[in-house]
Write a protein that binds this DNA or RNA. Sequence first.
DNA 1: ACGCTATGCCGCAAAACCCGCGCCGAGCAG
DNA 2: CTGCTCGGCGCGGGTTTTGCGGCATAGCGT
Lengths: 154, 154
Amino acid sequence: MGGESTFDLDAVDWRILAELQEDARVSYAELGRRVGLGATAATERVRRLVDNGVIKGFRAEIDLERVGYGVLAVVRLRHPSGNYRKLHAELERTTEILQCHHVTGKDCFVLFVAARTMRHLERLTGRIATLGSIATSVVYSSPLPSRVITAPTD
Amino acid sequence: MGGESTFDLDAVDWRILAELQEDARVSYAELGRRVGLGATAATERVRRLVDNGVIKGFRAEIDLERVGYGVLAVVRLRHPSGNYRKLHAELERTTEILQCHHVTGKDCFVLFVAARTMRHLERLTGRIATLGSIATSVVYSSPLPSRVITAPTD
DNA sequence: ACGCTATGCCGCAAAACCCGCGCCGAGCAG
DNA sequence: CTGCTCGGCGCGGGTTTTGCGGCATAGCGT
């Protein structure tokens, strides 16, 4: 249990996932109505999807700009291999770091950073730069901020 | 209404945002209980946050690996300026592209791409490479896949 | 074919929840 | 003090949730 194997989803499961990605607060009764199931069956499907780790959680999506984070940046960090310790500490301490991915290539880590102002971003990147050399790209806009995941079409 | 101004949030609003980022399906009654409000007041707060665009939506978070997308990659695209048309068409057509950000620097766009296999990724990056020169980094793991947004601490 | 079991969905009833209503108290201007 | 607004509360009827039992279908060994 809880490994990293894939899980078999039928067409109804995928419709449920689509609905819940669009509106995670829809009632089970309404959800069932939309996918052609009763409320009980829909509830059971969702419970199984959560238990099997297909659905990792239900999250409110926040508008960064509206809450005072006007600047979003992608920071690529060339981290001297070895002490992940300092990086982990930095990730824990710095709530402005929204995402961190360990990737192939000479840019070992890719971070997303939210800042209130350019001055704020300057301070944050300064801190990150103590871990290794960095390249910072400020986001102008996001033509596709996030997409709902659909079934692989073979 | 609906511009891009910031919105004033008090401490209770931030606690509500924190709760809804952790579990977007919590009932209004329970939410009120957790932040020290009645159900009605909590409902009203959330309604205002949604109406003012602070909350952009409620989304189920899917485990890409569990649904068959075992490979995640960051693709940096140097797009010849001008015809956004082709890029937009590619973004619409290709459901495997999960995010696209327009950024400063010589890597004009940063994309997140989900693929079933390396072969699948090869095909996808091949398509994207028709738009401009690309640099692809495959994600090993994500030490911080996504963080809940908190109040700027000045 | 037959019985057996497992699975997935439905119906039902009690408890919880949602939502629109009116009311209350604090803060504030005149 | 009076009148006003704003945010929160309580309340009642309609809806949803949730646990339980029942039913139909599929798979399987004999």
